[in-house]
């Protein structure tokens, strides 16, 4: 017997926490962690909903692909952060303000 309600609450809170991290934290790497949390919240959702619609495998498959995409995003993202670091010597987005208009 699986209880869906706490899992829904978990995913909602994970998403909200991820969003809060993205908005509040002033460090690109921590923002990246927040994004990972948001993606994981969706994954929890997908897997729980797959249990509600068990005739197909869609939810679990989607979750697998989300993990793949998250890996790519992290790899490219960290590469970009590292390069910005070389130019600016900081990973605090607020200090990176050459472009204005």
């Amino acid at each position: 017997m699986i209880e869906a309600l706490p899992l829904h609450i978990l995913s909602a809170f994970l998403f909200a926490t991820g969003l809060a991290i993205v908005i509040i934290k002033r460090n690109a790497i921590v923002v990246l962690m927040g994004i990972e949390l948001m993606l994981n919240a969706s994954n929890v959702n997908l897997i729980v909903f797959n249990r509600m619609h068990p005739s197909t495998f869609d939810g679990q498959m989607f979750a697998l692909f989300v993990i793949i995409v998250a890996v790519c995003e992290t790899a490219v993202g960290l590469a970009i952060i590292l390069r910005v670091y070389r130019f600016y010597k900081t990973s605090v987005p607020d200090h990176i303000q050459e472009l204005k208009g």
Partner: peptide, 8 residues
């Protein structure tokens, strides 16, 4: 939480 109706 309204969607958490049926359990599979």
């Amino acid at each position: 939480s309204m969607m958490a109706t049926s359990t599979a």
